[in-house]
Each structure stands twice: as structure tokens, then as C-alpha cells.
């Protein structure tokens, strides 16, 4: 089956925030047919690789099939967190958008469906 390389933003949206020094990134499928793509392509390993140089700790992934969503915890990401961090984005507000830049491969038929 023909595959197309797209950015995650085409099939998902997201919101992110802080939990101490960890960032939380919720990724939500724009349609339920895309949820299996998220499950398959947004693994702990691919997400860790995507955030190389940003996330310096482990990545945790949690599934919310009821919302067609995944929640990621990016440990050791916010430069000490909240008030201690010197980062412009000390609270991880833009991590969601950063996640959506990720490139993934999707079946053509799924995108046109």
C-alpha cells in the first residue's frame, strides 16, 4: 500500500504543560481512524528520538483510547522546572507544537478516506 510522509499535525493536535521538571504532551487524533497510526508511530523510542537535545530523561507513554489520544511524559526536559528553569519555555507550553512537527508515514488511503 502506498505511503505518504506527512507531519503529525495533519492528523493530530496536542496540548502540553509542565509536571515539575517533566513536560506533559497530550496528542489527540483529529479523527478516530488516525488513532491506530498514533499508537504505531508515536512510540517511546520515536518520541525520545524526536526530542533529542530537548528531553534529557526517559519518555513515558499512556494510552487514552476513549479520547483517541496518547499522553507523553518527557522527563528531565524543562531545565529544572517551573520557577527554577532559565528556559524561555520553562513550563513546556510549546512542546505540543514541537511534537506535531514530527514526520510520520501514513497509508495514502487513510488520508484520502
Amino acid at each position: 500500500m502506498a505511503k505518504r510522509r506527512i507531519r503529525l499535525i495533519e492528523i493530530a493536535h496536542a496540548r502540553s504543560g509542565d509536571k515539575g521538571d517533566a513536560g506533559n504532551v497530550g496528542v489527540i487524533a483529529r479523527d478516530e481512524r488516525f488513532y491506530p497510526v498514533l499508537i504505531e508511530q508515536l512510540t517511546v523510542d520515536t518520541v525520545k528520538k524526536h526530542f533529542e537535545g530537548i528531553c534529557h530523561g526517559t519518555v513515558e507513554r499512556y494510552e487514552l483510547p476513549n479520547l483517541g489520544a496518547l499522553n507523553f511524559i518527557l522527563n528531565n526536559t524543562l531545565g529544572g522546572g517551573g520557577t527554577v528553569s532559565l528556559k524561555q519555555d520553562a513550563q513546556g507550553k510549546t512542546l505540543g507544537a514541537a511534537m506535531l512537527r514530527m514526520e510520520i508515514e501514513v497509508d495514502e488511503s487513510l488520508l484520502d478516506g
Partner: peptide
């Protein structure tokens, strides 16, 4: 949905003094 995903950890264990809420429900 975006707000439900905001600043949560393990969705099965959203812990408050009042209960543990299961966000996967």
C-alpha cells in the same frame, strides 16, 4: 479533549484528596 490532556500524568490515576479519577473512562 485538549484540556483533558493538560498537565496529567498516568491517566488511570489522577489523584486528588477526594478520589482517584480514571481519565481512560
Amino acid at each position: 479533549k485538549e484540556q483533558l490532556l493538560y498537565e496529567i500524568g498516568d491517566p488511570r490515576e489522577y489523584i486528588t484528596p477526594d478520589c482517584i479519577a480514571d481519565f481512560t473512562s
